[in-house]
Design a protein around this nucleic acid. Structure first.
Lengths: 243, 243
DNA sequence: GTTAAAACTTGATCCATATCAAATTTAAAC
DNA sequence: GTTTAAATTTGATATGGATCAAGTTTTAAC
């Protein structure tokens, strides 16, 4: 039996630090000498970001990496044909910009979908700290290896999928899984994204996406009420998604 | 004018250590005390892997991470419907299995496409070394951040693309870029993969892929001779790929 | 080299998604 | 609250890729 789905997520709710990917590099560290509180040096917590706020622009030099604290961010790239492609989404507890650690430049633009908030770490200052506190290095390794795994899993979810049904099924399962800790539900989500953005991300037209949503509802696979989407038949969706 | 393309790549050619993603964690490290040669402790160089050799099976515990030294490996997953999905390819200089550092389990099966070779690092032994030689940690951070970037870039290349034309264009540009250092060519590749595997990876049927290959040749975008593929109109392909 | 199997290509038809068009619902601005 | 714009849905038609079928080429086995 599916777990109860809260009718509305508290807009002011931040992700728990324990559920945040940045946790390993933002918590106080107990060393032989003392417990260092890093929040004073390189960490800024829960900075508010209004709807459509641009965290950083594609091609600008890396200065900070972020973790989503509340809300959703979309990662966009301009194509040669001057269209905007959404190439990723980030939910509470997830990192933004950490893939620029290697390149030193951001390679997409990050935009707040609705009113949101982020925690922010200065890369320069963290690197300085890392030279004197080895634990920071170890924690960064953990963070990056976890991130590598997540990226791979995300890639697998979409590569080789073409049918609109399997794409939407994969998308819904993916975002609900990624938000389960934050929302407290493993079958339901309040998705602030408009359909147009979802279609853009999946490479479908909005009309097609709308039709698949309608079909899934008719077939009793999902239930939609405004922004709220609930999965009714998780197993059938997994089969559809070809996981 | 496109650079000359060698008619055949030397089958016995290994990737240069300087061009290998594993480089940062496999080279001798100069410490205050001494230069440590890690090849004695956790590194096995250039192990031969015959065609169809399985490096590791999906769901088995992580023991080693690999770098391709020569040849190509395909990463496969079994779906619920018992089909084999190719969810990734690895070329010389690229890592395999490093995304399991977080999960501790491999989440795909790695198979040699043709006769190949790999360098292999024991995770357990490397971790032990890392505790006494801090430089190893720093190098591992570099490696993982680079890998995170590569994954993101790879993801971007395919997400949101549906047309067979754009998928193949993106694929060709992607693999030629990834192999440029190894092959010495930025517009040409000898692809050991059979078309069936390419189609599987891209989520197309082999007939469709064949037709797109034919069309690209007719339109003078590429030139194909057996396994050898040369890009003639890189700019048009970039436009097609919607990069 | 000969034979058999595997890989690749091409054609015809069918179906899923894109496209074009218009109506309806929802959200934002005033 | 009213007005306006944005988002979403639904219908009709066109198109691109899947599917089925058969032939050709390439590769592997002997």
């Amino acid at each position: 039996m599916p777990s109860q789905c809260k009718s509305k997520i508290d807009k002011n709710k931040y992700v728990e630090c324990d559920d945040c990917a940045m946790n390993s590099i933002c918590q106080p560290i107990a060393t032989a000498q003392q417990s260092i509180n890093l929040s004073d040096s390189y960490l800024h917590k829960r900075i508010s970001a209004k709807k459509n706020k641009v965290l950083f622009q594609q091609s600008t030099p890396l200065t900070d990496i972020y973790a989503v604290s509340s809300g959703i961010f979309k990662l966009c790239q301009q194509t040669d044909n001057d269209e905007e492609n959404i190439i990723g989404l980030r939910f509470p507890g997830e990192l933004i910009g950490e893939d620029a650690l290697y390149l030193k430049f951001y390679n997409y633009t990050a935009i707040a979908v609705g009113d949101s908030s982020v925690c922010k770490i200065s890369v320069e200052q963290m690197t300085s700290c890392g030279k004197v506190v080895p634990e920071i290095q170890q924690n960064l390794i953990y963070l990056l290896s976890r991130q590598t795994y997540i990226r791979q899993r995300n890639f697998q979810a979409y590569i080789g999928k073409k049918s609109a049904d399997s794409l939407l099924a994969a998308f819904l399962l993916n975002i609900i899984e990624r938000n389960a800790n934050y929302t407290g539900s493993d079958n339901c989500i309040e998705l602030a994204l408009i359909r147009n953005d979802v279609a853009n991300f999946l490479g479908l037209r909005r009309e097609t996406l709308s039709r698949v949503f309608s079909k899934f509802q008719k077939d009793q696979l999902i239930q939609v009420e405004g922004k709220r989407i609930q999965l009714l038949e998780q197993k059938k969706l997994i089969k559809l998604a070809d996981f």
